Computed example of a mutant assay.
Amino acid sequence: MVTDGPPPVLHRPGPGATIRVLLADDQPLVRAGLNAVLTDTTGIDVVGEAGTGAEAVRLTRELRPDVVVMDIRMPGMDGLDATRMITGGGSPAAVLILTTFDTDDNVYRALRAGASGFLVKDMVLDDIVAAVRVVATGDALIAPGVTRRLIAEFAGRPEPSPPSRTLTGVTDREREVLALIARGRTNTEIAADLLISLGTAKAHVASLLSKLGARDRVQLVIIAYESGLAGRPEPP
C-alpha cells in the first residue's frame, strides 16, 4: 500500500488565490534564490523557510502552506522523514522534493513517503515556478521527462513477487489508463493513445485516484508497479 488508510482531503487554492509556499533546504543560498524568484512571481507567496526537516514539519503545521519545496539531504531529520510526517499527519500541503535526481537513491522512498513530485536543482527557475503552480492546483504533478526517468529507476529494481497490490474495482479501460500513466503519459497523450477525448481521459484519471486512494499521479505510478500492471518503460 502507498498510504495507510484513505488520503487526506487536499485543499487546493481556488482560481486567483495566492499559493502559499514553504521552502525547506539546508543551503541558505538555495533558499534565497528560490525565495527571490517565487516572491517576485504574481500569485505566489513564500510564507517561511526551514533549514532542517524538523523545522519544515513544525512550520508546515504552523503556517499551513499549500506547497512545501523539500530538499532530501538535510541535517538531523532529512527530507524523507519530514515528508512522511507532513503527508502522514493529515496536512493538505503538497510536497515537492528538491533533489539531484541522477545521484539520489532515495527517490522511491520519497514517493512512498507521500511526495507529490520532483524539482531538480539544475532546472531553470521558470520551470520551478511552473512546477509549484501545477502541484498547487492538483494538475499534472510531474513533468513527463522526469516521470520517464523515474520509471526507468523503478524498472531497474527487483520485481515484486507476487505483486503486493491488487486493483479491486478498476475497470479494464482504467487499467489501460493506469498502465499509460506508469509509462509517463500525460492526459493528452493518453487520450491520443486510446482514441478518447481529453475530458474522458481526465475522468478516468480522477476515477483511478478515487478508487485507489492515491493522492496524485505519482502514487498511481507506484500502484501500477506494485500491482504488476506496468511493463518495461519506453526509452525517454
Rank of each mutant, 00 (worst) to 15 (best):
L10M: 11
E176A: 05
L150E: 01
P162H: 04
G169Y: 06
D172V: 12
L198M: 09
A206Y: 04
A32C: 03
T168K: 09
M1R: 14
A115F: 01
V47T: 09
L141S: 15
R73P: 01
P8L: 05
F154N: 04
G117E: 00
R20M: 04
G184N: 00
D45R: 14
L229T: 07
V129C: 05
F154E: 09
S197P: 06
T99G: 03
M123D: 06
M1F: 11
K121E: 02
A155H: 14
L220C: 03
S164D: 13
P236Y: 00
L63K: 14
G14V: 09
V107G: 00
L208N: 06
T200K: 10
F101E: 00
L119K: 03
L141C: 14
E174Q: 15
Q27G: 05
A113R: 00
I19R: 07
T186E: 01
D25T: 01
V2W: 02
A191N: 05
A155F: 12
L98V: 00
A179C: 02
A155I: 01
R165K: 13
D26H: 02
L229I: 07
T103R: 14
T166L: 09
L38C: 06
G14H: 05
L208F: 05
E234F: 00
T100C: 07
E226H: 11
G231I: 09
L63Q: 13
L194M: 11
R64N: 12
D66V: 05
V21F: 06
R73V: 12
S207G: 15
D127R: 15
S197A: 09
V120W: 03
L209E: 10
A152D: 12
G213N: 11
R173A: 09
V21W: 06
L150M: 15
R20H: 13
D4I: 15
T137M: 09
M1Y: 11
A32S: 13
V95E: 04
T52S: 14
A93G: 11
R109N: 13
R109T: 12
R133Q: 14
